[in-house]
Design a protein around this nucleic acid. Structure first.
Lengths: 209, 209
DNA sequence: ACCTGAACACCGTTCAAGT
DNA sequence: ACCTGAACACCGTTCAAGT
C-alpha cells in the first residue's frame, strides 16, 4: 500500500485515542489505538518513539488545563491555593489517566515551568531559599495524593465483610451522602488539607519575619 | 515429572522473589519469578490466583510493618502523627514497590483494620461523625502523596536544560544538601505537611467544643 | 515520509497429562 | 495436591518492502 497522500496518523490523534481507551476501559495498548484508527500497530512508531512517549503526550494534554496564571498575581497564599486547586482539577477531569501518570517522573516542560514560577513567587514573598522546595514538594504531595484518591473513589475502599470494620463502614456511609459516591469526601479532604497547609505556611512566614 | 515430595513453591516465596525483582529492576513478571525459583511459569497458579493476587501479597507484606498500636493509646494527635509516620515509613522501606501498590485499591484486611481503629479513635475524641472520614482521607492522601515522592526522589525531577528553569534548579540544589539526593527534601516536606494538618485538626476540634 | 506485512521476544493465563 | 509441557491471545518493538 505504501505512503498515503495525506498522513493517517499524528501525535494528536494518537493521544486522543489513547485517552478514549483509558476512559472506556481504564487502560490502553498500542495495538488498540492502531485498530481504532484503522491502521497497523507498527505505523504508530512513525509518529512517536514508543509507548512511554504516548504517556508523556497524555500528561501534557492533561496538564495543559492547569492555570499557572494564578501564580503571577495577587497575594501569595491565594495564588498558591488557586494553583493547587487548578492542578488537582486537571487530574479530576481525567481520573482514568491518574494511575498512568502518577508513577512516572515529571518531564513535561509545561509542568516544570509552573514549578519555576512557584519558586519565584515564594522566594519573592520571603520564604527562605532552603525552605522553598520543601513547601512546593509538600504542596505537590498534597495535590497528587488527592488526585490518587480521585482516580477510583468508589473502588478505593473495598470492605470485605462489614462486620470486621463497622465504624469504618458507617463513617464512609455518612461521608458519602450528598454528591457522588466518594467525590464529596475526596473534595472535602483536599480542601481541609490545603487550608491546613497554607495556613501553616502563613504562620511560619510571619513568625520568621 | 509430576508432583514433588515437598512443594517447591508457596505464597511466601513467590512474594519474596517478586519483591527482589522489584528492588533489582523496578518491575516483575510471573515468568521471571518462576525462573528464579527454578520452576515453570504455570506452576505459580497452583499457589496464587493470578498476578493481581501477588500484588496484594506484596501489599500485605509491606503494610505489615505499619505500627497500628500507636492508634490505641496516648493523646489522639500524637497517636495519629505516629501512625502516619509509621505508614509512610513502611512504604519508604520498599520504595520500588510504591508505584505498584499506589494505583490499586486497598483490600488488605490488615490495612482496613487500622482505618477502623483510626475512626474509633477520632470519634472517641470528639470529631463529628460526618467529619471523621474527611480527616482520615486527608491524612491518607498526605501519606500516599509523600510515598509517591519517595518512590523515585532523584528521577522525579528531570530538568531538561537548566536555562529554562534556573530558580527551580537552584532550589532543588539547596534542598538536596545534607542527606541523599531527594530524601531529605521528601522527609522535610512530609514533616511540614503532617505538622500543618494535625495542628489544623487540633484547632478545629477545640473551636468546635 | 509514512504505511503494510511479517517477524521477535515477552507477557498473563489455561489445561491436559503425569506423579 | 503440585509440577511439566504446551498452547493461546495479547503485548511492545523492529524492519524490510512498498509508494
Amino acid at each position: 500500500m505504501g505512503r498515503p497522500r495525506t498522513a493517517l496518523l499524528d501525535p494528536e490523534r494518537i493521544t486522543t485515542t489513547a485517552l478514549e481507551l483509558l476512559r472506556e476501559q481504564g487502560e490502553f495498548s498500542l495495538p488498540q489505538v492502531a485498530a481504532r484508527l484503522g491502521v497497523r500497530t507498527g505505523s504508530i512508531y512513525h509518529h512517536v518513539d514508543n509507548r512511554a512517549a504516548v504517556v508523556e503526550l497524555i500528561r501534557a494534554r492533561v496538564c495543559a488545563a492547569i492555570d499557572a496564571d494564578t501564580l503571577g498575581s495577587g497575594p501569595w497564599d491565594e495564588a498558591v491555593t488557586a494553583w493547587a486547586r487548578s492542578y488537582r482539577a486537571a487530574f479530576a477531569a481525567h481520573p482514568y489517566a491518574v494511575a498512568l501518570l502518577m508513577t512516572t517522573p515529571v518531564r513535561a516542560p509545561v509542568v516544570l515551568e509552573q514549578y519555576e514560577r512557584a519558586v519565584r513567587l515564594l522566594l519573592g514573598v520571603g520564604f527562605a531559599k532552603a525552605e522553598v522546595m520543601t513547601v512546593i514538594t509538600a504542596l505537590e504531595n498534597l495535590v497528587l495524593g488527592s488526585a490518587l484518591d480521585l482516580a477510583a473513589p468508589e473502588t478505593m475502599w473495598e470492605l470485605p465483610d462489614d462486620t470486621t470494620t463497622p465504624l469504618l463502614a458507617e463513617a464512609l456511609a455518612v461521608a458519602g451522602e450528598g454528591a457522588g459516591p466518594g467525590a464529596r469526601r475526596a473534595d472535602a479532604a483536599f480542601d481541609l488539607a490545603l487550608e491546613a497547609f497554607v495556613r501553616h505556611c502563613r504562620d511560619r512566614l510571619h513568625t520568621a519575619e
